[in-house]
Structure formats: structure tokens, C-alpha cells
Simulated assay, not measured.
Amino acid sequence: MKTFTVVEAKSRFSALLAEVEAGAEIAVTRHGKIVARLVPDHPSVAADAFRDFWIEKDDIDLQAPEDAPAEDVASMDD
């Protein structure tokens, strides 16, 4: 995460917003302490890393398997 002081962030605000739109997270500091963070509106998730792969492949099964039937609680005590 990049860090900028309030003064730097103020003078470069448009450029920082462009970086945030591209997915960057930016911390804004005052007197050495983070007072704000600029983050993308839609946070990235791990699945985003594989999205292109999934779109290109028709043979990938993304269905979750059915849950196994519940076991009888009484049989677990034996």
C-alpha cells in the first residue's frame, strides 16, 4: 500500500484516484499516522485472479458437490 501525507494527497488527488480505480490502496497520513485509506469501490477477491481462466474454459465444473447425508447422532456415541 502506498502512503502519502495529506498535503501530497491533496496535490495529487486526481492521479491517486486513477491508481485506486486500477485497484491500488492508498493510505493518507497526518503527523505520521494513517488517517484515511483510499480503496477501490469494489474490493478485489481471490476469485478475481481466476476469473479469466474460468471464462475461457467451458469444461470446468464449478458446481459444488451435494452434501453427504447427516449421520445419526446416536451412532456417534458408540
Rank of each mutant, 00 (worst) to 15 (best):
F53I: 12
V7D: 08
P65L: 03
K10Y: 12
F13M: 15
V35D: 14
K2G: 09
W54C: 02
A74Y: 09
A46D: 00
P43I: 03
A36K: 13
V45F: 00
L16F: 06
V45M: 00
L62H: 01
A36W: 09
E8H: 07
E19C: 08
M76H: 13
A70K: 11
K2P: 03
T3E: 14
F50E: 01
L17A: 12
A49V: 06
W54K: 00
M1D: 09
A70V: 09
D52T: 11
E21M: 09
D52I: 04
V39L: 04
P69N: 11
K57H: 12
H42D: 10
A64Q: 02
K2A: 11
E25P: 00
G32A: 12
A22P: 02
A49T: 08
V39N: 01
P40H: 05
V39A: 06
P43H: 06
E56D: 12
A36V: 10
P65R: 06
E8K: 08
P69W: 06
E56H: 07
I26P: 02
L16T: 04
F53M: 09
M76I: 15
I55N: 07
A18R: 10
L62N: 04
A74F: 11
V6R: 13
W54A: 02
A74N: 14
A18Q: 06
I26Q: 07
I55H: 05
P40W: 02
H31Q: 15
K57F: 03
A49I: 08
V73D: 10
D59N: 09
H31P: 00
V35R: 10
V6A: 14
P40S: 09
A27K: 05
K10G: 12
Q63E: 12
L62C: 10
E71S: 13
A46F: 00
I55P: 00
D59E: 06
A9S: 07
A68S: 14
R30C: 05
G23S: 04
R37F: 04
S14E: 15
E19S: 13
P69G: 11
D61Y: 01
R37A: 06
A64I: 01
F53P: 00
I34K: 15
A22C: 04
Q63F: 02
R51M: 05
T3R: 15
E71R: 14
D52M: 07
A15L: 13
I55S: 10
M76Q: 14
E71L: 13
D67N: 10
D77K: 12
